[in-house]
Design a protein around this nucleic acid. Sequence first.
DNA 1: GGAGAAATTAACCCGTTGGATAAATACTGT
DNA 2: ACAGTATTTATCCAACGGGTTAATTTCTCC
Lengths: 237, 237
Amino acid sequence: MAKAAAKRTLKWQRDPEGMRLRILEAAKQEFSTHGLAGARVDRIAAKAGANKRMLYYHVGNKDELYLAVLEGAYDKIRSEERGLDLEHLDPPEAIRRLIEFTWTYFLRNPEFLSLLQTENLARAKHLKKSTKVKSMHSPFVEMIRTVVRRGVESGDFQVAVDPVQLYISIAALSFFYLSNSATLSVIFGRDLLDQKAKDERLAHMSGLVLAALTGRSAELFEIAKTPRARTAVVQTV
Amino acid sequence: MAKAAAKRTLKWQRDPEGMRLRILEAAKQEFSTHGLAGARVDRIAAKAGANKRMLYYHVGNKDELYLAVLEGAYDKIRSEERGLDLEHLDPPEAIRRLIEFTWTYFLRNPEFLSLLQTENLARAKHLKKSTKVKSMHSPFVEMIRTVVRRGVESGDFQVAVDPVQLYISIAALSFFYLSNSATLSVIFGRDLLDQKAKDERLAHMSGLVLAALTGRSAELFEIAKTPRARTAVVQTV
DNA sequence: GGAGAAATTAACCCGTTGGATAAATACTGT
DNA sequence: ACAGTATTTATCCAACGGGTTAATTTCTCC
């Protein structure tokens, strides 16, 4: 009772872990919407429901805060990637799944795209200092390597492409479309992010890559064009 | 004589057009290396060999300066695009040329990539206000449309892909590789910008797109892999 | 129940930065 | 040659923004 009465008059309560998480979440929003230089430390504090001093207490200065956010972003995508486990699918299906995963992940996590853009504008200055990120290899490169080998052996694929090139290409097709959708929409005078446009984009990307690998352009693009049960996988955003 | 003597003691001379160009060039450098928020008006002035007041006198405030730079960048690429004239080439060769042009243009004009990244981080806020840019359509979309039609009719291409999708994909393959080369290089632990890597990238992109269109994966990737006379077109940067 | 550590608040500091003002200098037409 | 205008320089300033200092409050453990 006395304790309850005392609690009532508390001006604030402690929550170091929660505070740290709220700070990082707020910082992620701020850095992804405003970039590194455009981000405001005060806004992050406000958004986290905290005092500015807290950022320095729990994470560090603006740069350290930014790096922590970046590392968290890489950590998250790598974690989801590991959970995908595409090794047992037959080669074309594995590639198709990879494309869909990449696409939907970028759709679900637009801040990830912005953060990467920001970091690349800084020529990866911060990432180079992060030992953590450097050790977080994407499992997809090795996955692609074995899938391509299996595909070539089985006759599904006509070429043994370099897995790194293929990985970059698959990421590129989704990344550029989404990260540059604002300027592209202005230039083409149409909304690239409405549901129809997004469905068509996924179909196009799958068709393009699989046609190149298998050499069966016609069928693949046609298959990709017709609505399939798989479209359920395409997440709305 | 008297005039010459007078000129010698001049503290400065007028050059409005030259000044404006130097300001825009300096601003392009500044905005592309530091982004919009990170750019410093004083640095632009210093780089242009001018007084800060000159920026406001000749162009306008920071935002107007930025938009002028952006419009100039679009103007430049559209102008080079128009000069390319791919209509008369046979379809596969036209696509190959387009890919090479896109790639080398991005290599030669890294500021263009940075400016687009910056503008997309701002969700095209400034571009939307530019009536100038909206009217500068890339000639490539129409070019691709006719090339694809011709290719399908001649039997070179197996599918009639949407020209906008294809245009975006071709841009994406080059853009992402270059704009994200900093982070990708860190993550893959290898330099994506050395000459060998760049040659391989161009070969991969051409092989991927043409294989998808023609359905002749094997030959195309192989052709692309072997050094050709065409590699002379690949510019070093 | 209270002392010491941990977490949080409030207030302030000071260099930077975009932008403005006013004065000086160069050019142009007559 | 000179009046009027266009261009450039030299200062100034108010707001902002990252970071710091010091005091305050809550928690924990004995």
